[in-house]
Amino acid sequence: MLVTGIKVTLILAAATTIFSLVLGTIVAILRISTITVFRALGTLYVEIFRNVPGLFWILFFYFIFPELLPEEWGQALNGYIYYPVVAGIAGLTVDNASYVSDILRSGRLSIPHGQREAAISSGLSRVQQYVHVLLPQMFRATLPPLGTRMVHNFKNTSLCMAISAPELTWATQNIESITFRGIEATTIATLFYVGLAGIMGAIIITLEKVLRIDVSAKKNSKIQ
């Protein structure tokens, strides 16, 4: 049960990290768009998903979302044995993406206006400007807060116990109530959480080091 718990937690963490990064990037681009409708959509997204607890969204995707679909689809989802995991991924993703988009947006604001102008005047299309000039700088500038956010999201996977997704916290709780081996299970769970969050932190610090550009090669004048 513990092994399954670890597996499910890993799946939840990996999937939501990737999906929320993608969704968060899209929302961030909407929010910094020059087109008013896009900007409004992006802002609406953040206002809705960031201001409502993540747990609510997990419950929403598990209980309410299937009801909103045509009946057969809803029943198919409810009958799907992995649906708790899927609903958990959906809930955590929409929640985390709102934070990711906000962090990335702050990264965009830190990039001088001239970067975009240089990209425009060299003939790069809008998409190319983002892919080659703006996004790489946004991710670099926001790596530390983005990393912290992902660790936070990793811990939030435990919220999925509320919909009986068999993740680690749910497993620990179950072991406790069935076998009364709570201390052992809790110890293992604690070690796992600390270990994995530690690994995530180490990855982020390594990334920061790899991406840091060494200034020491030559002293530089004051501009930029």
């Binding site: 240089a118 060299s122 003939g123 080659h132 790489p136 991406l211 930029q224």
Partner: peptide, 19 residues
């Protein structure tokens, strides 16, 4: 985009891509 590709521009603050 095609027009801008034919016109080079050099800025006061260089605006090189730092990455």
């Amino acid at each position: 985009t095609a027009l801008r590709a034919e016109i080079g521009m050099v800025f006061q603050h260089f605006n090189l891509y730092p990455h």
